[in-house]
């Protein structure tokens, strides 16, 4: 298992996809937040109306904006990277080399997901640190206890957003297609947004983390967040099982 984790970690660290994915998720989100803040400061009335609760030039507004961007954009970003981690083996043809090894394919799949999880936590923490630095740079003052709690929720939101992208690993495996998996990531992002708008509420695993983070923790309870974790775990299990039973028969 250690061998598979080392191999997968090296592949992600050395790939342009890993680097660009990390930059898009951290620098991209911060750039968007900076842009929104600048537009609000210039008194743009259209944007003020569009961003809703994120329209205030303080910690609350900054963190509300971060949660909105994370819930939609980060799901797509994480989904694309996870699609690549699984779909590339089929697209590059290297899947044939992952047979006839003393490391089972289920363990290789689990190693991919473990490396993805560690990377997602690192990206989540980096993003939160970046948001903190942005708020301090914008002279929003020292964070209050509520702000620290909101920063904590932002970190958990980013991690759970990475977790709910898990189905794309299964889609990549079933379809043996990188593009189909990316399509799956787009579909997940759409379902999450539509579900939230349609009022599916905290019982919808894809939307619960965002609702929870954007409502100061009131719109989704721990059971509903646990359901999100269970949803991801189920797809981790399905993906590993599919890799264990994989046949190159088409």
């Amino acid at each position: 298992m250690n061998a598979a984790i080392r191999v997968e970690a090296q592949k992600l660290v050395r790939s342009p996809v890993g680097v660009i994915g990390s930059l898009a998720l951290v620098a991209g989100t911060l750039a968007l937040l900076g842009g929104i803040t600048a537009a609000l400061a210039s008194g743009n009335p259209e944007l003020t109306a569009k961003v809703g609760v994120a329209a205030t030039l303080d910690w609350d507004g900054l963190l509300a904006g971060a949660a909105q961007i994370t819930s939609a954009g980060a799901l797509l970003g994480f989904g694309v990277v996870l699609s690549w981690m699984f779909g590339r083996e089929f697209a590059d043809g290297t899947i044939t080399g992952l047979f006839a090894l003393p490391v089972s394919r289920a363990r290789i799949a689990l190693a991919k997901l473990a490396v993805y999880a560690v990377w997602a936590v690192a990206v989540s923490v980096l993003l939160t640190v970046g948001i903190l630095a942005l708020g301090l740079t914008l002279n929003y003052g020292a964070p209050s206890a509520e702000t620290w709690a909101a920063l904590g929720r932002q970190t958990v939101l980013t991690i759970l957003t990475a977790a709910v992208a898990a189905p794309v690993a299964w889609v990549a495996t079933l379809t043996r297609s990188l593009l189909a998996a990316v399509g799956g990531a787009i579909a997940l992002a759409i379902v999450a947004q539509v579900g939230a708008l349609a009022g599916a509420g905290g019982w919808m695993p894809l939307a619960a983390p965002a609702l929870w983070a954007m409502s100061n923790g009131t719109a989704a309870n721990p059971m509903q967040l646990a359901l999100t974790v269970a949803f991801s775990a189920a797809f981790v299990g399905l993906t590993c099982a599919s890799w264990a039973r994989l046949q190159l028969n088409r």
Binding site: A3, R6, Q10, K11, R14, D92, G93, G97, L98
Partner: peptide, 21 residues
């Protein structure tokens, strides 16, 4: 069909991961 080797890694790195696997 296809070597167990990844385009973003060097020859030496690819041989090392093949050894690990």
């Amino acid at each position: 069909e296809v070597p167990l080797a990844y385009p973003e890694l060097t020859v030496r790195e690819n041989l090392r991961i093949a050894s690990l696997l």
